[in-house]
Design a protein around this nucleic acid. Structure first.
Lengths: 212, 212, 212, 212
DNA sequence: TATGAATGAGCATTCATTCAT
DNA sequence: CATGAATGAATGCTCATTCAT
């Protein structure tokens, strides 16, 4: 009986996953509003009605994707604990790690999330509270801790943090709105960001883009 | 006859302007898709049908707003010529200028532009070619020129430029998706950005947020 | 300007009337739920969407019909003032009048109203308060007045009234659910009811149905 | 083998009964159309699909309920034979009996039957032929017999019968469409009806409603 | 037999667009 | 030019019915 329930739950989770996968695909291509339930059902290889067995409204598909992103964010934040040696080494390896994960297929999730946050007030509040606020808090806390430990100078962390995480969001947005050159040079960003972050332009020795 | 035509043209331009103004307002509130022609007509104080005398499709309203932004961008770029003295002073005054202009009512224009660029392939390409590519080119050219003139060190400018302008886009996006704290501290950004840009975190002496 | 508005109002009222007429027809044939907006629009000779320019929801068509019936009821109640001579003469002429009006095309309105009242809780309450309660109150008040004036004996009027008006409702219902025989003999009811009402079966001398 | 079949049949009858019971409940609450198979299955504590093992279509549930009512009607009609002594005593006891049975939970069956008869042509004909016509015929026959026996005066029985049974239908309908006052005074109806039926208003001495 | 997930036809409602006035 | 009533295609969602397990 309990094994039965377990199987049931797994089947349900699998179906939900399958549908969300399809929704993510279709949303990434057309955005939320232009995507129809029929689109998504066809992409998922199921009937329209089936979607409604797993999601009450079309909106819930978006919230489902948001939750996925939230979970991903939570996992990503756990990573930050590690820092031990000097900040520069840590930052370099952290950013490499992040930018390796956040490549084109992954960042597609942001496309519809950002677009809907910009455009849909209700969703905006929910998504900000679920994704951005916790991320901001976690980063700021970490920075203050390092600063207190003498690993970083004192600074206006709530703003500095926004500038730097904002630059990552900006870069992701650039790629999503069609900056092909940036997409090509994505792998060079961790190193560059590390140096810009710590020492600014004046600390960056000239290394012209290799393949441009 | 020709003066008649001139008046005609001015009248038409005025009406188009009136309609685009209304569209901008409504789009900023609900986004493009959720806005209806009726919404826009009511906001503009005219009849639904009248909009179709000046714009062939709803999509053309968005393109109209894009053109406005493009013109604004062109004007802004002319500004960059000015730099003479040391880079730091110039950058500080340039950013102050920019952030003074780019406050909440103005950046609303980006809300729908970014959202639609993320979401609508056709619009994306057009808008990137019209706004972002020229801006990128102009900034990069300016930086290379300064670098050649010895005012800046040599650097991977196409990437550095994207990181920095991306951080501005990111900050704007944060405000648009509901970061209230950032909106409150908007006026502190020019100074902070100047220093972060040139010298990084290590060059920023501690100045904790005043009212936080 | 005001004449323009007046014409506007008349046009709107006319369209609403046309739509309600169509709705009444379709509802009478299929009932409320089985009737589709498309049905009604086609019957009215207009497009589906046009209905929504005059009624916010499909439900409002039903409420519109209810209001019509309410108005008809209000007019009918004014009639009751008349009674002067003896009750029997008055009753006979009153019932003749009523049954002449309440023939098959007219009573069709009750079909969907009663069916929905039986079946739809929200509508039930509204319709009872709008049609039945006021009718009950008016009849009971009139009876008490006549009773006080000595024209009628004292009686348990709230119940007697319900028995008699109920018999009219029952007869209407019989016709609506397919009692052809009763429909054929509809014109004999005023006379029979007058006598049954006042003197019961024992006061009714034998007059076998003429054409049965 | 045949005993097996017998058990089979009983099991089938039991299941059908269980399902009809649930259907009656749900129909009484929401009407036929608004009730879903899922509703009914849940109320019956079985799966949706199971219903289709016992009833081919949703419509058949309604016909099943009709058949039940038909059987109940047949039993009720047998009762009428009894009358011996004077009509008044018989009528009083007959109506008391009927109104005792026909209280709120029982008359709920009429809610959906009447509503669907009003609204669904096919069902209307079937139900009229199965319930109303036989009842009419039986009552009329009985009345004629009594009349022939001198227990009642001669009268236009097909019409008189409809007026009186119609008043019962009307009273039931009133309760079903929300006449709370009538529901409260339900137990007073047999006595009042007996007197009104036989002697009309003029034969009813004043007895004002007790608790009103 | 019993189940309940899956199906897809059907329907209410919205809204960009047209066009007679 | 301006209007706004009319249009009807498009879409989210429901629910009777089927069928593999």
């Amino acid at each position: 009986m309990s094994s039965n329930n377990l199987i049931q739950e797994q089947l349900i989770a699998a179906r939900r996953g399958q549908i969300l996968e399809a929704a993510a695909q279709v949303f990434a291509k057309k955005g939320f509003q232009r995507s129809t339930i029929k689109d998504i059902a066809q992409t998922a290889g199921i009937a329209d009605g089936t979607i409604y067995l797993y999601f009450k409204h079309k909106d819930d598909l978006l919230l489902g994707l948001l939750d996925r992103l939230t979970q991903a964010g939570e996992q990503a934040r756990q990573f930050e604990q590690v820092g031990e040696t000097d900040i520069e080494s840590w930052l370099r390896s952290y950013l490499s790690q992040q930018f390796m994960v956040m490549k084109l297929p992954q960042i597609e999730a942001f496309r519809v999330i950002i677009a809907e946050m910009l455009t849909n007030e209700t969703f905006r509040e929910r998504a900000f509270a679920q994704i951005f606020q916790p991320t901001f808090d976690a980063i700021e806390a970490q920075l203050r801790q390092w600063s207190a430990a003498g690993l970083l100078p004192a600074a206006d962390w709530e703003l500095v943090m926004r500038v730097h995480s904002g630059s990552v969001l900006g870069l992701i947005t650039y790629v999503l709105i069609g900056d092909k050159r940036l997409a090509e040079r994505w792998q060079d960003l961790p190193e560059l960001l590390t140096r810009l972050l710590l020492d600014g332009i004046n600390g960056v020795m000239g290394t012209e883009g290799r393949d441009g």
